[in-house]
Every structure is written in C-alpha cells, then in structure tokens.
C-alpha cells in the first residue's frame, strides 16, 4: 500500500468516527478555502482572446452597420 493510499483509507475510517458538528465545521472551513481559491481565479486578468470579446461587446454597433 502506498503512502497516499494509506492516508486515504485511514482518513475515510477516521471520518466515520467524527461527530456531526466537527464534520460540519470541516465543511465550512473547506468552503472558505474553496471560495478563496475561486476568488483568486476570478480576479486573474483575462487573456487577450477574452478581452477581445469584451471589447466587441463594448462596441455599440456591429461592423455591418453604417
């Protein structure tokens, strides 16, 4: 059994013995971590091709119009 396998199997066994309040607190904490990760991704500058889309959206008229 690899180190990773061992950690995963022991972790699963451990969670079964954890009380519901602790599980809820762990989930809340993980939720915070996920939101932080997600927030950083959303704050990243957009790549050129998406900026170009934004620029096109900002033009009031399509190219075909006079």
């Amino acid at each position: 059994m690899s180190k990773t396998d061992k950690r995963h199997s022991t972790s699963r066994a451990g969670l079964l013995h954890t009380d519901p309040r602790t599980i809820s607190a762990v989930r809340d904490k993980l939720g915070e971590e996920l939101r932080a990760m997600y927030g950083r991704l959303a704050d990243e500058p957009l790549p050129d091709r998406l900026l170009k889309l934004v620029w096109q959206l900002d033009q009031p008229h399509s190219k075909g119009k006079p």
Binding site: L15, T18, V26, L30
Partner: peptide
C-alpha cells in the same frame, strides 16, 4: 463532494486547516 474532499485532503477537524 464535501465529504470526499475532506477525505482526500486528510482533514479530520477544522484545526487541520
């Protein structure tokens, strides 16, 4: 998903983070 994520990260209590 939340339960599995905690398992994969080896988190057993909020103090683990």
């Amino acid at each position: 998903a939340r339960t599995r994520l905690a398992e994969l990260l080896g988190i057993e209590s909020p103090d683990d983070i």
